[in-house]
Write a protein that binds this DNA or RNA. Structure first.
Length: 874
RNA sequence: GCCCGAGUGGCGAAAUUGGUAGACGCAAGGGACUUAAAAUCCCUCGGCCUAAACAGCCAUGCCGGUUCGAUUCCGGCCUCGGGCACCA
């Protein structure tokens, strides 16, 4: 390049220098405060939110993917002229901080705030369009104060209540363990056998909202079906009947719940859970039964353990009477009956329930068939339970009825005898939020021996968590910290003890989306600004939160609505669940059987002539390693790639581009170093193309006012066709991979377009402007630099999304495909407005087509305008 | 067991409403430039047949169906991934 041409580049460098242009762009955005969101009622609002991270200390690739998707959507909406809010914050309470504290002897608060600083810096270097003034951390008393405030209100309302719950208890560490922390029945830290213990806990009455949480899913068209299905499953609504079995020779009834009242006449015994009051009563006079019940209670509480357990039981010696026949039925204790569902008791119908069949067979209890298929008789004797719906027999007055008929008639009969009625049962349980841990939001309750559990009054909030503690791993340090728990009762003024449990960290993450609207509100959880911004228009996060977080947040939104804090029933209008980031694994199996995983960059891959991987070896010793397949990036598989390395080496734009290009957002993404190289190459090519254009001097973009040669019109058609596709892909479909592919295709065409005429250069200017703007949500830094280089004073970040010029899409001729009997036989070119007859004639005239229709009778001619002609011959 | 989702070249993927299967990228092979290498640029690239083809045949997990036409719709199966699970 000559000196004169170089001069014309202005401040555009001849070579693409990501670090330099990224710093420049970020400095500009920060100085101009372009991402600061203001409540402006004259502009349409758009609230784009990505799930906030746990401040572990370092971003991982999953974060980069999540936040890039969110940023692309936010920046696109901004270019549509919307007033965009995109905030970021920290889900800052939780166990890892306590573990790190124990290891490093540093208080969790210090560790957490240091991590936040490090990760904030990383996020900034990726150029996300966040309004950093709204940043929040859930461990900040200014945040959790309002959580405590809501807690006290809900406690007074009865939406939060206290009861004893069964938990995993580590007797050495004196703490409750999560199911994940129980390994083969022992505490993960202490190694002590875990006990089941009943301790008092605070619960959110989420079951009161079960119906609304379920029904609301039908009004969320912007949510993935998969997530809705998982939530429906979790809530687990079933319609059934409560049936009362009167105690034989005593007062009262034994309640059971069943979804199959039609099988009632086949009940041959009744089974209760080990924790059922009747079991305890019977055990009082029966030592063997007592021992059996204790054994049942000792077993693990995890679902997996329960599912694999063998069915066991013991007769209680008690009897109940069948509500219709009066027949005496024995009551058994069975380990397959759960205290937490229904009534903790079931009517057992061995003929029509698999579990009851297995149990009855084992203990030789009677099996009575009462349901048969509508068109056949049942096998006699049964070899397995018949669990389908069918027609009743052996059921007296109910014989011949189907499921619905039996349900209704049985309900009427039970009601008449006051021995039962229909009921809806949910699988969903109330949400226990007490945690015997230090690094969490204190539960704002004061225990007074005279006044009971008293919520902390508003003027005593927040109940501040001391931040200078280093936990030692045994129990909750708050319970040993007199300056924390010693207090006085707000009601009677007497000596009282503060609750030392903290809340489940899912509580903080259930309402942060609302707090971002008014992060500095000092008089309430949120203020009027929440009504301006909510609901979140687009929420983006991992599928792993499909149930818990997303269900709790929906629940909280309804709680806040019922407190008059927010309007609307749902917090998130649209939800996008991004796929995982995967990478290749390599390992060696050692003599001990232990697998050692190697970092992919330390491994050399050998390929065959077709490029297939045939073997791999370690760079350091040249010896072979096993190719372990594609797995989720993780520490244990040693296949994680550090985003920082990637940013340092290639720049943020390359990282963002690769992430968006490798797969559509909802699918899993396979990491590929070569793919990253490819993304980087594309940006270099684009830069070079712009340099070549700009170095020839400035030119105004083509405005459509003068005529073009066929080559020029073809190029302009390609430009606007690409624009139309990218607009749809980014704006509607969220298929950023195909949007990028379309721009790449266009860039390839531009590289080949060699036209130095004024018109040609004006077309190139228009094309480069469109490429720059359509890529700008994905690679905002390079777009910022290119936009300036193309001669614009206004920054790219403030530019509007370009408009398709429909007139550019019109072509004089259209290429059609000609099929004979559905097989492709030729191509023809016709005038775009050609009549059907002309199209048919052209198709029939094609030389190759003629070979296939010659001497045959044409039975049908199908013309799909603009697409194809299919000639059907006999 | 129940509920979702997915199966397309050597690989990641595309084909949006039933209309040209494999866009775009990666890897691989060949060439140009270079003292050389890297970088860059150009060409080839599903399989079979063929000297070659813009001639043909086969091909979207398998088997069938609907249709002028099926990766796409329907039925049955297989495999993989995810979720839930003694939920009465």
């Amino acid at each position: 390049m000559g000196a004169a041409a170089k001069h014309k580049l202005g401040y555009m460098d001849e070579h693409y220098q990501p670090n330099k242009i990224e710093q420049e762009a970020q400095r500009y955005w920060e100085e101009q405060q372009v991402f600061k969101a203001r409540e402006d009622s004259t502009q349409e609002k758009y609230y784009c939110l990505s799930m906030f991270p746990y401040p572990s200390g370092k971003l991982h690739m999953g974060h980069v993917r999540n936040y890039t998707i969110g940023d692309v959507i936010a920046r696109y909406q901004r270019m549509q002229g919307k007033n965009v809010l995109q905030p970021m914050g920290w889900d800052a309470f939780g166990l890892p901080a306590e573990n790190a504290a124990m290891q490093n002897k540093v208080p969790p608060a210090r560790w957490t705030y240091d991590n936040i600083a490090a990760m904030r810096k990383q996020l900034r270097s990726l150029g996300f369009a966040y309004d950093w003034e709204r940043e929040l951390a859930t461990c900040d008393p200014k945040y959790y104060r309002w959580e405590q405030w809501l807690f006290t209100r809900l406690f007074k309302k009865g939406v939060i209540y206290k009861k004893s719950g069964v938990v995993n208890w580590d007797p050495v560490d004196q703490t409750v363990l999560a199911n994940e922390q129980v390994i083969e029945g022992r505490g993960w830290r202490s190694g002590a056998p875990v006990e089941k213990r009943e301790i008092p806990m605070y619960y959110f009455r989420i079951t009161a909202y079960a119906d609304e949480l379920l029904a609301g899913l039908d009004h969320l068209p912007g949510w993935p079906e998969q997530v809705k299905a998982m939530q429906r499953n979790w809530i687990g609504k079933s319609r059934g009947m409560e049936v009362y079995f009167p105690y034989a020779g005593g007062n009262g009834v034994l309640k059971v719940f069943t979804t199959r009242p039609d099988t009632l006449m086949g009940a041959t015994y009744v089974a209760v859970a080990a924790e059922h009051p009747l079991a305890a009563k019977a055990a009082a006079k029966n030592a063997k039964l007592h021992a059996f019940i204790e054994e049942c209670k000792k077993g693990g509480v995890t679902e997996a353990e329960l599912a694999t357990q063998e069915k066991k039981g013991m007769a209680t010696g008690e009897f109940v009477m069948h509500p219709f026949t009066g027949e005496k039925l024995p009551v058994w204790v069975a380990n397959y009956v759960l205290m937490g569902y229904g009534e903790g008791a079931v009517m057992a119908v061995p003929a029509h329930d698999e579990r009851d069949f297995e149990f009855a067979t084992r203990y030789q209890l009677p099996i009575k068939q009462v349901i048969r298929p509508a068109d056949a008789n049942c096998a006699e004797p049964l070899t397995a339970a018949y669990t389908e719906h069918g027609v009743l027999f052996n059921s007296g007055e109910f014989d011949g009825l189907d499921f619905e008929g039996a349900f209704n008639k049985m309900e009427a009969a039970l009601k008449a005898k006051k021995l039962g009625e229909s009921r809806i049962q949910f699988r969903l349980r109330d949400w226990g939020i007490s945690r015997q841990r230090y690094w969490g939001c204190p539960i704002p309750i004061i225990h007074c021996s005279r006044c009971g559990d008293v919520p902390a009054p508003d003027d005593q909030l927040p109940v501040v968590l001391p931040e200078d503690i280093v936990p030692d791993g045994s129990g909750n340090p708050l319970a040993k910290l007199a300056r924390f728990y010693e207090t006085s009762c707000p009601r009677c003024g007497g000596k009282a003890r503060r609750e030392t449990d903290t809340m489940d960290t899912f509580v903080e993450s259930s309402w942060y989306y609302a707090r971002y609207c008014a992060p500095d509100a000092t008089h309430g959880m949120v203020d009027g600004r929440a009504r301006h911004w909510l609901p979140v228009d687009q929420y983006i996060g991992g599928i792993e939160h499909a149930i818990l977080h997303l269900l709790y947040a929906r629940f909280f939104h309804k709680l806040m609505r019922d407190e008059g804090l927010v309007t609307g029933d749902e917090p998130f209008t649209k939800l996008l669940t991004q796929g995982m980031v995967l990478a290749e694994t390599f390992y060696r199996v050692h003599a001990s059987g232990k697998k050692e995983y190697f970092f992919p960059r330390d491994v050399k891959i050998e390929r065959d002539a077709k490029g297939r991987t045939v073997a791999a070896s370690l760079n350091s010793d040249g010896q072979p390693v096993t190719v372990g397949g594609i797995e989720t990036m993780s520490k244990s598989k040693n296949n994680g790639v550090d985003p920082q390395q990637l940013i340092d080496q290639y720049g943020a734009d390359t990282a963002r581009l690769f992430m968006m290009f490798a797969a559509p957002p909802e699918q899993s993404l396979e990491w590929s170093d070569a793919g990253v190289e490819g993304a980087s190459r594309f940006l270099k090519r684009l830069w070079k193309l712009a340099v070549a254009h700009v170095s020839q001097g400035t030119v105004a973009a083509f405005n459509g006012q003068y005529s073009l040669t066929p080559e020029q019109s073809e190029l302009r058609r390609a430009v606007h066709r690409a624009l139309a596709k990218v607009s749809d892909d980014v704006g509607r479909r969220y298929t950023f991979n195909t949007a990028i592919a379309a721009v790449m295709e266009l860039t390839n065409a531009l590289t080949k377009f060699d036209d130095a005429s004024d018109t040609g250069r004006a077309l190139m200017q228009e094309a480069l402007e469109i490429v720059t703007l359509t890529l700008s949500p994905i690679v905002p830094h390079v777009a910022h630099a290119l936009w300036r280089a193309l001669g614009h004073q206004e920054a790219a970040v403030n530019a509007r999304w370009p408009q398709v010029d429909e007139s550019a899409l019109i072509s004089d001729t259209i290429d059609l495909v000609v099929q004979v009997n559905g097989k492709l036989r030729g191509h023809v070119s016709v005038a775009s407005g050609a009549a059907r007859e002309a199209v048919e004639a052209a198709a029939l005239a094609d030389a190759n087509v003629k070979r296939y229709i010659e001497g045959r009778q044409i039975r049908k001619l199908i013309v799909v305008p603009g697409k194809l002609v299919n000639i059907v011959v006999a």
